[in-house]
Design a protein around this nucleic acid. Structure first.
Lengths: 243, 243
DNA sequence: AGAATAAACGTAAATATGACGTTTGTAAAT
DNA sequence: ATTTACAAACGTCATATTTACGTTTATTCT
């Protein structure tokens, strides 16, 4: 009962970043481009990913990918799914590209997503042609990366309803409306501001700071922070059966 | 940027089965045994898993594993995590076993869990020495399979709070108390029967049948079924932000 | 000083939850 | 045939949460 052929494993990373000013949930993608004398053969975007070294854990590989892409470490990451359909990479474009990169069988990938602030990434300092795209307006994507992004997004949607991971996407100091805007961006829904406000402020782990927004042209909003310590202490998760 | 060494991939499956009569959530495990003339070298249990063929998807592999283990197809399955630490398989027992089976590098595994009814599995018809163990009383486990089972269980606990997957573990016709017992088994909590009853019956997708239990020595309980159709139709999931 | 506007607060009805006590229907025992 | 045992099934009330709105306040800009 041996496999017919040895398989190759890589880790692909969906990097989510939230831009507070434009209120846009973005994905970081890198440009793929290949041309002959008179033809553009490949011109689209892909996720970053590397092959897994045998001496490292899958988490290590993901961390390495993010480091090389953004220079960042210690960002929230989650392994959300492995993709391994045998015909993942059969489009002409992808085969061309794989030859070009001298890979020979990039079949199975373990996918992670990262949550960070767009402002923490200095795109000019990355060697890759990396660029942010709103999750609602993705470009042409290579391989099966559109599918991978969709699945990551789906997982993020679910996860942000049961855990306070949303704060990983926000600056340390934020307004109530920032949080609401982010929820609305992720879930694609509208939320009543008055009710949302009341509910969020009532949480013990949402701490009002002695600070307000500066440089805004209207009434400046109160700034808050998220206390992971307090959240962890009251960690008796809401085990209500809601179906 | 090539990997130092080609990696091998397998799929391991955690098969959960619920036994309505004993009210026990069980895991199906297979016996691992190896001895020399005067020594027992390996004597424990493991999950079933196979290597991934290049022509099949990961889902296919999982389906194949379940089929060969139980004869069943079309059971609920979920890919919940990939495990790939480089030192997963370093215990003496495991190395011995791997040599014995002529595997040479079983390093990365994509793990699935299945949900089914214990009554659907005919253990006498399986060639493997398969046996059910209560999740609360697992035997000695080989490889890193205890960790994998724990993660599967954790995922199941979370999942059953947000989706009606619990009915995959129950017979088509069940009583309200069956459902409560199962929730209690999975979550390890006690639930007030009167409140649970009220809540469950109020769901439109829980259909009262024109049938009652037979062969019980007390007041026979009303039987119900779960309507996936109705559930799917009212699929506007409870997008409440509960943190 | 006044206008404009986002931030922040308030209220009342409807719904859901949590913690209990009570009644009912059936099989088995007498 | 009546009684008994017992799980199934129903009921109630106080409290908490949600939903759906209207109103006030603080600040910047003109």
């Amino acid at each position: 009962m041996k496999p017919e052929k040895i398989l190759n494993i890589s880790v692909d990373c969906v990097v989510f970043g939230y831009d507070v000013t434009t209120k846009s949930l973005n994905v970081l993608l890198i440009k793929r481009y290949l041309e002959t004398d008179n033809d553009i053969l490949v011109d689209d975007y892909v996720l970053t990913g590397y092959h897994v070294y045998t001496h490292e854990t899958l988490d290590d590989t993901a961390t390495r990918v993010l480091k090389e892409l953004t220079g960042l470490t210690n960002q929230y990451k989650k392994q959300f799914k492995a993709f391994g359909s045998p015909n993942r990479l059969t489009s002409e474009k992808d085969l061309l590209w794989i030859k070009n990169e001298e890979f020979n069988s990039r079949t199975i990938t373990v996918a992670y997503y990262f949550l960070l602030k767009t402002e923490d990434v200095d795109l000019d300092n990355t060697n890759n042609n990396a660029k942010w795209f709103p999750i609602t307006d993705l470009p042409d994507l290579g391989f099966d990366h559109e599918k991978i992004i969709k699945e990551a997004y789906k997982d993020l949607k679910e996860k942000c309803l049961s855990e306070p991971i949303i704060f990983k996407l926000l600056p340390d100091k934020f307004t109530i409306n920032d949080v609401q805007d982010l929820y609305e961006s992720i879930l694609g829904i509208e939320i009543d501001n008055r009710n949302f406000r009341r509910k969020l402020i009532s949480k013990k782990y949402i701490i009002a700071l002695d600070e307000k927004q500066v440089g805004v042209s209207k009434k400046p909003a109160q700034l808050y922070m998220f206390s992971k310590d307090i959240y962890d202490k009251m960690f008796q998760k809401n085990y209500l059966i809601s179906m």
